[in-house]
Design a protein around this nucleic acid. Structure first.
Lengths: 182, 182
DNA sequence: GCAAATTAATGATTTATTCAAG
DNA sequence: CTTGAATAAATCATTAATTTGC
């Protein structure tokens, strides 16, 4: 696209093929409004926002409109993804584990404010004894075994699959559909 | 306020150490996993990692959890700083560009109690008169106001008739890509 | 060379968000 | 409108690096 170093906001007048490139100030203010509860601005609001943000750079009403649309959609998508993963995990491992964690960090509710109350209340700490644990984790095993002559426990090096731990301690291994790859 | 005298114990030996001190092997393997794409391990994965890293030294599930949380957060933070710096360079904020931009991004403000005047019905045609428009969203006005009166270059702020934007009509408006984030 | 003092990294907690379910 | 679930951001706290004076 013949990118001539145009001063950032490449809103070329005319036939206009360029996209809006928000400035940091614009993004900051938009995010602030979004967090403040404005999820779907009305046309009037969009006009006001546009006029106010135009002092930071070129901007149009449709940019604002699309920004809110995209931002909301992205938020929802992200959350849905998480919930899906969680639900899947819950189905597969109803017994224990499954929480993606932060809840486990709330040991006690009443005393947590007063004192640093040392933290041995972690559920995760009670690791199930490592008997079947270290049998099937392709990538993990692969990553954990190089560079040391010690070879932890499991010495099997799978080809190249990038799936993480499909395993459960007692059940057969169905993958829990991980989602770490952005 | 005043710190309690730390028990000071050998973290890796036994007893209640102050905090986890990862061994170089542990750090190396954790970083390798992170770089391989594992950003938020599930509880099961954390257990796996913990049990495998425990051969290099004392470690608990919460340590692994915290490690990934912190690592991810600080990665994001670093990246954001870089991007912010770059954008600032481009924009050449002359007045006071060296105040921590992060503070501006802090969501410390609690204007969120204001009700979102959501209005999905945005027909541009029947816009109400502008007079009442300005009144029903003090929140937006407040947020959009310049914090220090910096107003870089463009100072035109017409609060009146503004450019309209296409609605879902015959127009195409297919240029709403997302690039304001990341 | 060595510790006390100071600064930078990083482990561990707390707080503020988000969307959706009830 | 309130609450549930789960962070990610912000912050607190402690360890490691380093500087400094002797």
């Amino acid at each position: 696209m013949t990118s001539v170093p145009v001063p950032v906001n490449t809103s070329r007048s005319g036939g206009g093929g360029s996209r809006w490139c928000p400035t940091p100030e614009q993004v900051m203010l938009l995010e602030r409004m979004y967090r403040s509860g404005l999820k779907t601005p009305s046309a009037t609001q969009i006009q006001q926002i546009t006029s106010r943000l135009s002092i930071y750079g070129k901007i149009q009403g449709k940019n604002v409109f699309y920004w809110f649309q995209n931002h909301k959609a992205r938020d929802r998508q992200k959350l849905r993804k998480k919930l899906m993963a969680l639900h899947h995990q819950n189905r597969l491992h109803p017994a224990h584990d499954h929480h993606p964690f932060q809840t486990l960090l709330h040991p006690v509710e009443d005393v947590s404010k007063c004192k640093p109350m040392i933290n041995n209340n972690w559920k995760i700490d009670d690791l199930p004894s490592d008997q079947t644990l270290m049998c099937d984790c392709p990538l993990m095993t692969m990553m954990l075994m190089d560079h040391q002559g010690t070879t932890p426990y499991c010495t099997r090096v799978p080809p190249k699959t990038l799936q993480l731990f499909p395993l459960t301690t007692t059940h057969d291994l169905k993958q829990e559909d991980d989602h770490f790859n952005t």
